[in-house]
Amino acid sequence: MSTLTFEANDILRWAVSLAWPFVRISAMLLVVPVFGARQINTRVRLGLALLLAFLIMPQLPEVPAIDPLSVGGVVVAIQQALIGIGMGFILTLVFSAINQAGEAIALSMGLGFASAVDPIGGVQVPMISQYLSILATLIFLAMNGHLVLFDLLLRSFETFPIGSGGPESDDFWHIASFGSRMFAGAMLIALPAVASLLLVNLAMGVVTRAAPQLNIFAIGFPITILAGFLIVLLTLPSLTARIGEFVLSALPLIERIARI
């Protein structure tokens, strides 16, 4: 009966071939929305990254023989981490812009004090921001965005192989400019509600001037909050379409970062 024998060099080569994709995948899962949520245990993320690295390792190009404990190995690890963080951070900008839009709407409604913990960022955000964040997460999953993201990640190892370098300075400038576009897009999402609530507040001011004996604080806040909820409900169809466009707009930049 024949027995399998492994040499130390074979085991080291196999471990290095698994380590480099694991660094890129785990870095992306650390910052990408949904998978990078604070409610998801770190062990779960690391286990998922290890499973993905093990599954895609046979499909990867030949990994250069670099000692992970050397200076060159540390540089390669940093490069892989930057690639993964860059790919995940782009989607994080999308969800942050959506939270910003919800915060603008909540402040206009008078609900800025009503906050809860965001399941993605783990910070206190207004309730409208949390609602939009959950809506964006559902849209992202319904569009199979997580599967598209994993597909881009797998293709990135072919177009941006391990040891070929890391992100360039232009990539960081593209990410920064994308963040400014996301901020402008967030204002477009919040603009219908903010403008409508501004008209409601102006109407309340006119009513106060016409009837000074009316207690505007007793009726103004309930009316503003009710009007805000109605506006959010009426703009929901266009809101979902805009959030879908936000998610889709991030994919070309992810492809650019991954050299796809």
Rank of each mutant, 00 (worst) to 15 (best):
S108C: 08
L111D: 07
G112P: 09
G112Y: 11
A114I: 13
A116D: 14
D118K: 07
D118M: 08
D118I: 12
P119S: 08
I120V: 14
G122I: 13
V123E: 13
Q124C: 06
V125T: 10
P126K: 04
M127D: 00
I128D: 01
S129N: 05
Q130R: 14
Y131W: 13
L132R: 01
I134Q: 12
A136N: 02
L138I: 10
I139N: 06
F140K: 03
A142D: 14
M143D: 07
L147I: 09
V148E: 13
V148I: 14
L154K: 14
F157V: 05
F157Q: 02
T159C: 10
F160C: 00
I162P: 00
I162V: 14
G163K: 05
G163E: 01
S164I: 06
S164Y: 03
G166K: 04
G166Q: 03
G166H: 01
D170G: 12
D171W: 02
D171P: 02
W173R: 14
W173L: 15
A176S: 10
S177G: 00
S177W: 05
S177P: 00
F178L: 03
G179K: 02
R181F: 06
M182L: 07
F183E: 11
M187F: 07
L188F: 04
L191C: 03
P192T: 01
P192D: 00
P192H: 03
A195F: 09
S196F: 11
L198I: 03
L199H: 05
L199V: 12
V200S: 04
V200Q: 04
L202A: 10
G205N: 09
V206D: 00
R209G: 03
R209W: 14
A210P: 00
A211P: 00
P212T: 05
N215I: 06
N215L: 11
I219G: 02
G220L: 08
P222K: 04
I223C: 06
I223G: 04
T224V: 11
T224L: 15
T224C: 10
A227P: 07
A227Q: 08
G228C: 11
F229D: 01
F229Y: 12
L230E: 01
V232I: 15
L233Q: 08
L234V: 15
T235Y: 12
L236C: 05
L236I: 13
P237N: 05
P237C: 07
S238G: 15
